[in-house]
Simulated assay, not measured.
Amino acid sequence: MKGRTAAAAGLAAAAAGWAVRDYRAWKALGPAGMPANPAGWLAVTGMRLRARDPYTFREAGDGDVSRLLISLDPRPGERPEVAPHPVPHRVLTQHAGPAETVALQDAVAELAERPGFEMRLSDWEQHHPALSRVDGPELAHVHPSDGSAHVVLSPLDARVVVGRRWGEFHPLAGVAPALPFMPGLPAGYVLLYPPQDAAQVARLATIVEAATG
């Protein structure tokens, strides 16, 4: 009996230690579309149980690959490390520099100047401006904290972008929301990795432009 009690106490202590460390790591990712408190962390932890493999392709959908992505070259180097939390969905390594982050933000804002598009507060992040269709869905937003971005692509275009290592699927892309108040994410909802130089800014801007087609 004492042995089982000690083992249970040890497991409880280990679980509590993990929870504290994970909560602090989650808080360090910055603001997103969930309350930055223990209740928000618990909700996000529940979402992790619904997470999909970020590199696994699903249905390709109809249509053709965007002409803007047909000649997209593979991203050089290794993929960055991505935090395990679905919200906020952020990278832990290979952050963009301030100049590259601003350049990508400017490129996205420039797309919003086209007829039928606008910049408005992100429906999902709720903290950042997002490229959106006028009176329509959100298409992309940039995260100022690390220079990464989210973009809504067609399923086939998303396959190309993920396959060529420019990003990965959001863990809840195409998955039913884990909570009633959490809007579902499209199947082509992709995290774009932070640009490391001006050339990568241009590639990412092209990917976002493909989302407007």
Rank of each mutant, 00 (worst) to 15 (best):
R4P: 04
R4V: 02
T5H: 13
T5N: 13
A8Q: 12
G10K: 04
L11I: 09
A12G: 00
G17T: 09
W18Y: 15
D22L: 11
A25Y: 04
A25F: 02
W26E: 00
W26L: 01
K27D: 08
A36I: 10
P38M: 03
L42V: 10
A51C: 09
A51Q: 03
R52Y: 03
Y55A: 14
G61D: 11
D62S: 15
V65Q: 14
L68A: 15
L68V: 12
G77C: 10
E78D: 13
E81S: 14
P84S: 03
H85C: 08
H89R: 07
A96Y: 01
V102K: 06
A103W: 01
A103E: 07
L104F: 04
A107L: 11
A109Q: 10
A109D: 10
E110T: 14
M119A: 07
R120Q: 14
S122T: 11
E125C: 15
E125Q: 15
E125M: 14
S132N: 14
G136L: 02
V142I: 12
S145F: 10
G147D: 05
V152D: 11
P155R: 08
A158E: 03
R159N: 05
V161W: 02
G163R: 00
R164L: 11
R165M: 04
H170M: 12
A173Q: 12
A173C: 13
A176M: 07
A176P: 07
L185A: 11
A187C: 12
L191P: 13
L192I: 06
P194Q: 06
D197Q: 03
Q200W: 04
R203L: 08
A205M: 00
